[in-house]
């Protein structure tokens, strides 16, 4: 029976049982939901006004940044067109809410409120306001499980935004809030404070989303690889709202495939073209 599962024969049963599980998860989530709505109810008028003003200000600021970003992205697209590469277009996202976390303390997963009925599929990238948070690993009719990038079985292909140095970020074995960069040669230029963005290799995550910030780098002569730790940008354990990337037919992926094929030619990068799938 378990063996069946490994080969995916049980997907339909899983879907059906997922349906049974949904009311359980809904019930288990109720205290949090009630708490949230209570705190929304009990908020005072002045607080609301204050928050409103603050949000308006933020909106203005982000509008202004968006304007800049738009002109930059137009310019970027033009440059990419000059280089004969297909551009990464803007991606549409589907908002979802985290309704439960995995009760298994050793696996870092959470349950979101969107399922196959909403068009969620396995392997879909999930974002948070500050960066990448994970990918969908199991889809049920109304809910789906998302594997977080800090899970020790999950590897995210990243690159340093400063210089394009590539690496693989695996969830740390001993600290569930950190990522370890694997197979980084001591000569590679990665420093503390560097921002890691998704490289788009492995074809799961879209390119150029912030993933993590390097917090420690240790190079010792007796080890063939540098020990580098990074902290995810996404507020992995405190957020409740996430976004699913709708990238079906995304032209950016074609560019990524080409790039990955080119990179596989170079001997150093060949090890980095590994797929970022769970397990």
């Amino acid at each position: 029976m378990i063996a069946d599962n490994r080969f995916g024969y049980m997907d339909h049963a899983r879907q059906a049982l997922g349906l049974i599980a949904t009311p359980f998860h809904w019930l288990a989530d109720t205290p949090v939901r009630v708490g949230n709505s209570l705190s929304e109810l009990l908020v005072s008028r002045t607080d609301l006004l204050e928050e409103n003003a603050r949000l308006r200000e933020e909106l203005l600021l982000s509008r202004q940044r968006l304007l800049l970003a738009e002109s930059l992205s137009v310019e970027n697209n033009r440059l990419l067109a000059l280089q004969n590469a297909s551009a990464l277009l803007e991606q549409e996202v589907l908002p979802a809410e985290i309704i439960n976390v995995s009760p298994n303390p050793y696996s870092r997963r959470f349950l979101i409120s969107k399922g196959s009925r909403d068009g969620v599929f396995v392997g879909q990238a999930v974002l948070e306001a500050n960066g990448l948070i994970g990918q969908v690993v199991q889809v049920m009719p109304f809910t789906s499980w998302v594997l977080i990038i800090t899970d020790s079985s999950h590897v995210t292909p990243v690159e340093v935004s400063r210089n394009g140095e590539r690496a693989l970020a695996r969830g740390s074995q001993d600290d569930d809030t950190e990522l370890d960069l694997e197979f980084v040669l001591p000569t590679q230029d990665i420093e503390v404070g560097d921002t890691l963005i998704s490289s788009g290799m492995g074809l799961v995550y879209p390119k150029n989303y912030p993933v993590a910030e390097v917090i420690s780098v240790r190079r010792s002569p007796d080890q063939s690889y540098a020990t580098i730790k990074a902290r995810p940008m996404a507020r992995v354990s405190s957020t409740r709202h996430v976004m699913l990337v709708l990238d079906a037919g995304n032209p950016g992926y074609a560019a990524v495939v080409e790039e990955a094929a080119a990179a596989a030619g170079a001997d150093e990068e060949s090890s980095l073209a590994a797929v970022d799938s769970p397990n």
């Binding site: 029976m1 378990i2 599962n5 049980m10 049963a13 899983r14 049982l17 997922g18 049974i20 599980a21 359980f24 998860h25 995995s102 009760p103 298994n104 997963r109 349950l111 199991q138 499980w145």
Partner: peptide, 12 residues
């Protein structure tokens, strides 16, 4: 089996 479905772990 129901617990497996609830926790999203491997069936069985």
């Amino acid at each position: 089996i129901i617990v497996d479905a609830l926790t999203g772990s491997l069936f069985g």
